[in-house]
């Protein structure tokens, strides 16, 4: 069973439908204690960093526990950014699970980045099985992640600067784009994530 954390930010409709489409048994939960029984945890997210952190506070400990227990974790968009230590968007600190920060997209491009952009794969991992360099994914964001350890960077895209699109460390996966809105290639990523779980 894959748990989608519903923390009251934006609709979880799309990610739920997409995971179900690739065959996942999905549970949408707003209760932290339910995360322990899941085989995978997904944090979606649209909205602002500060609001998200406030809403996620009750989940912080359980999310940390499930990651330590080796349960595969997928952060999407804002759900990626909150893993970092801090963001220029807010004074609220992030989870700090990943060293690094979240900064605003540069001024030489339109912000938010909104649309289909190509990724460049830096490192092949299971999550990107079947995904090729130059495949397009749907991005909607104004801030982007800068991990201290560049070894974690799995794929990037170009938008005025290098934008980290996919990161991975052990059982933590996170993507800046929206796989649930990125057509067949996006579904493939969700399917690969599902395969990394015991489901």
């Amino acid at each position: 069973m894959i748990a989608i954390v519903d923390y009251g930010m934006g609709n979880i409709f799309s990610i739920r439908n997409a995971l179900e489409k690739v065959g996942a048994d999905v549970k949408v939960t707003s209760k932290a204690e339910e995360l322990g029984n899941s085989d995978g945890v997904v944090i979606p997210g649209v909205g602002s960093f500060g609001d998200a952190m406030k809403q996620l506070l009750p989940f912080e400990e359980k999310i940390g526990d499930s990651i330590e227990d080796g349960i595969p974790f997928l952060g999407i968009c804002l759900g990626m950014q909150i893993l970092f230590e801090k963001s220029q968007e807010s004074k609220e600190p992030g989870f700090g699970i990943i060293p690094g920060e979240v900064i605003r997209l540069p001024n030489n491009v339109l912000v938010p980045q909104m649309g289909w952009n190509e990724i460049e794969i830096k490192k092949g991992i299971d999550l990107l099985d079947g995904i090729e360099n130059g495949d397009f994914f749907y991005f909607v964001h104004s801030y982007h992640c800068v991990p201290e350890n560049r070894e974690m960077i799995i794929a990037i895209t170009e938008y005025g600067t290098e934008v980290v699109a996919v990161i991975n460390r052990d059982n933590i996966y996170a993507v800046q784009f929206h796989p649930e809105k990125s057509g067949k290639k996006g579904l493939l990523i969700l399917k690969n994530f599902l395969r990394s779980t015991r489901c």
Partner: peptide, 29 residues
């Protein structure tokens, strides 16, 4: 939205933030 995994836009007759919310809550982006 059960079978279509690209952004969905909805218009016509949206007059208020409540109308917008009901569109977003049913799966519109």
């Amino acid at each position: 939205s059960k079978n279509v995994f690209i952004p969905l836009t909805v218009g016509g007759g949206i007059k208020s933030i409540e109308d917008a919310r009901s569109a977003f809550n049913s799966g519109a982006d």
